[in-house]
Simulated assay, not measured.
Amino acid sequence: MITATGSNAELAAPAVPFSARTPMVRPVALHRWAHDADAYTQGLLVHNGRLYEGTGLEGRSEMRYVMLRTGEIVLRTPTPDAAFGEGIAVVRGRLYQLTWRRGRGAVYSLDSLRIIDSVRYDGEGWGLTADGTNLYLSDGTSRIRVIDPAGFAVTRVIDVTEAGMPVRFLNELEWVRGELWANVYKTNLIARINPASGVITGWLDVSELLSLQERTVASTRGGTANGIAYDAATNRVLLTGKLWPWLFEVAVPK
């Protein structure tokens, strides 16, 4: 995301965490692999051992299939109409990608990344994930919409809070062992959210994954932490950021 007039991105980042009682973990990198430092990462996921990445910025947004260990882009498809690409998710064999402010997303073939369908939704699109049945969509506010993929109708809304206070700027989402994880835009924090109550039960601080020099270079270019992929087959979490030079594997905290 970048700031634009009339967007949810205009507000200042929330001063999270609101409570020192909420558990905080600083994940340690187990492995790291090269990541395209020009990729404005908006969505990241692993499906059947393949790494998919959705990138942003108008005229530069893509859906990609990327080789994990080399960072090589095997397949890439531009986002339709040069739209600002956002979060991605797979459910029922279909690969979805949101766009920021157009209220429309694309559906891709998992094998070829060919666009096979489209979906519509109200408001902004930021992050997207799936639990195997439903989709979860963030829009930069403190609310996450639960969506039925068949028709893209909203079935429930989750109000996300920590210490009783709403946490806005929820961005990239991932379903991790029954929890919703969300990057908080413009911060180095990932919220661990109870999807039933919306309460943030813990935080991950990813600020130490990059060196100080790497963080400085990325931030001066507009980069920030964003990108969470959980591989259920191997029980590992992959983390990166917009314009980050590395993709990291970290242990799943208890």
Rank of each mutant, 00 (worst) to 15 (best):
H35L: 02
E86A: 08
V16P: 07
A218P: 12
T201S: 10
D36V: 08
V74F: 12
V28F: 01
D117I: 04
T234N: 06
G87V: 03
E249C: 01
A251W: 13
A34I: 15
W246L: 08
L95R: 01
A163M: 06
W246N: 14
V107H: 12
R221H: 13
V206H: 09
P23V: 00
G71D: 05
G202P: 02
D139M: 00
D205P: 10
D231R: 01
V119P: 03
G54S: 14
D38C: 12
W175N: 01
N183A: 08
T161L: 07
T133Y: 07
E249L: 03
A225R: 14
G132V: 02
S61C: 12
G241Q: 03
P14S: 04
G6T: 11
S112Y: 12
T201N: 09
G103P: 01
V28A: 13
R94D: 05
V157A: 01
V16S: 00
Y230Q: 06
Y185V: 06
A251Y: 15
I147R: 01
N48I: 01
A229G: 04
L57D: 15
R64E: 10
N194W: 11
Y136K: 04
T141M: 09
E174A: 13
R114Y: 15
L247Q: 02
R101D: 04
L128H: 13
Q213R: 15
V250C: 12
G223T: 07
V237E: 00
T201V: 13
I88F: 05
L68F: 11
L239M: 07
I147Q: 10
G222R: 01
D139C: 00
Y96T: 03
L170K: 09
E249A: 08
S7A: 12
W33P: 14
D139K: 02
L110E: 01
T99V: 06
I200W: 07
Y96R: 05
V160P: 03
L243Y: 01
L209S: 09
A150P: 08
G227W: 00
S138P: 06
G227D: 02
L243W: 00
Y230I: 01
S112A: 13
N134K: 14
E72F: 05
